[in-house]
């Protein structure tokens, strides 16, 4: 193994370790944070930066263009789809009142009263509604 290979290996190992560390922080934030929006904030850390770092490390380690193109495809796909799914989940969470409204500083969507009048309560209000 010549010198260039060892440098590339060290770089790839650093990328892989930082990506794995981001996955661990996502798990910690998922367990410790109080509501859906903050858990989403923690849980989507590895979705873009972690995946891109790990894909970069794997593309450095793997030789051959087909694997590199496929890893690039995975990274680009994460970049496109992570905002879409996060937007949909957070919008539904806001509408279903899974958001801790006492922790929000600004609620730009909150034009409606916090507790619905009793005739609008239906059976599927969640147990932790605020």
């Amino acid at each position: 193994m010549n010198d260039l290979d060892s440098v590339a290996d060290v770089l790839a190992a650093g990328c892989l370790l930082v990506g794995a560390l981001l996955c661990l922080t996502a798990g910690l934030g998922l367990v410790r944070f109080p509501d859906v929006l903050s858990r989403m904030h923690a849980g989507t850390k590895p979705q873009v930066l972690g995946v891109l770092l790990v894909m970069t490390g794997a593309a450095i380690r793997l030789h051959g263009w087909s694997a590199t193109w496929m890893l690039l495809l995975v990274g680009a796909f994460q970049l496109v789809t992570a905002p879409v799914s996060a937007h949909m989940v957070s919008r539904i969470a806001h509408r279903r009142r899974h958001v801790r409204r006492d922790l929000l500083l600004v609620d730009e969507l909150g034009g409606e009263p916090l507790t619905p009048p009793p005739d609008r309560l239906s059976g599927d209000q969640p147990a932790d509604a605020h």
Partner: peptide, 9 residues
């Protein structure tokens, strides 16, 4: 939705 976020992660 918590479970959705956890499954995604």
């Amino acid at each position: 939705l918590d479970r959705v976020v956890a499954t995604d992660t």
